[in-house]
Design a protein around this nucleic acid. Structure first.
Lengths: 137, 137
DNA sequence: CTGAATCCGAAAGGATACTG
DNA sequence: CAGTATCCTTTCGGATTCAG
């Protein structure tokens, strides 16, 4: 290293354009970001499901949030919604090809989560115990 | 399919335990979920940076949010914080091994975002134009 | 420079009730 | 069943101010 006493690497921007918003990661993030989208996608990874099925599968989600979440996913072309004009209405949801490609990545996140959950929990315990004031100083 | 007229697959839970919260995906999500964590990680992927450097790199983030974000990442063992008792205090942040492993996945999300941003934009345009009422019915 | 603390508006999200 | 609409609480997050 040669950037001073702290050894800070002088790299510019991580994406190319310094003035650019942020590569466009925000687009995914806004979809991954909310509490429910990812869970809904995971649920639909299993296959086509009806509204109530998704709700039971995700759980914790309210009717309202499920509706909003599915609407957004549909709008982004990640989920396909199909309504059947049966007597009690029936609607099914399924991932589109685009949705499945994203679901694959989400699956990796889930795997990472499982693989690191213990380590993260341990880190948190230590942090909360020793406190933030245990660094170099 | 053999689950009725709608062709819904009868798979149970996507993760194993139906009563379980959700596999533990929530742990990652809570870290991926907020607007800033991911951006901060991306910024640190470039290397060790000081507080202000990260702030300039992420941009849009307020001092307050950067502090909170970095604190949480540190608590989870994703980021290592080092303080140097120089005259004007100097603090550096860098990804830990765990942080880098997550950063790799985030990089994939960024790639996906770039590859699909046009398609998503197009889907949104069509959805907003035709309206949600263009499904089977 | 790096942060902590306070204030406050905006937005997310839950609960509930009602509809086709 | 599959929503929609309303209310209301919680959280997020920006701006500002103060401190080591």
């Amino acid at each position: 290293m040669s950037a001073g006493h702290t050894g800070v690497t002088p790299l510019p921007a991580p994406c190319g354009l310094p003035e650019h918003p942020d590569c466009g990661i925000r687009d995914v993030l806004d979809r991954i970001g909310d509490r429910w989208s990812v869970l809904a996608i995971v649920e639909l990874t299993a296959g086509t499901r009806r509204f109530r099925q998704v709700q039971r599968g995700v759980h914790g989600i309210s009717q309202r949030m499920l509706t909003l979440t599915l609407r957004r996913l549909e709008r982004d072309g990640l989920v396909l919604r199909t309504a059947y004009p049966t007597v009690p209405v029936s609607v099914t949801y399924e991932l589109t090809d685009r949705g499945r490609s994203l679901a694959a990545l989400i699956g990796q996140l889930a795997d990472w989560s499982l693989a690191n959950r213990d380590g993260v929990a341990e880190s948190r315990r230590r942090y909360d115990a020793d406190g933030p004031g245990s660094g170099v100083s």
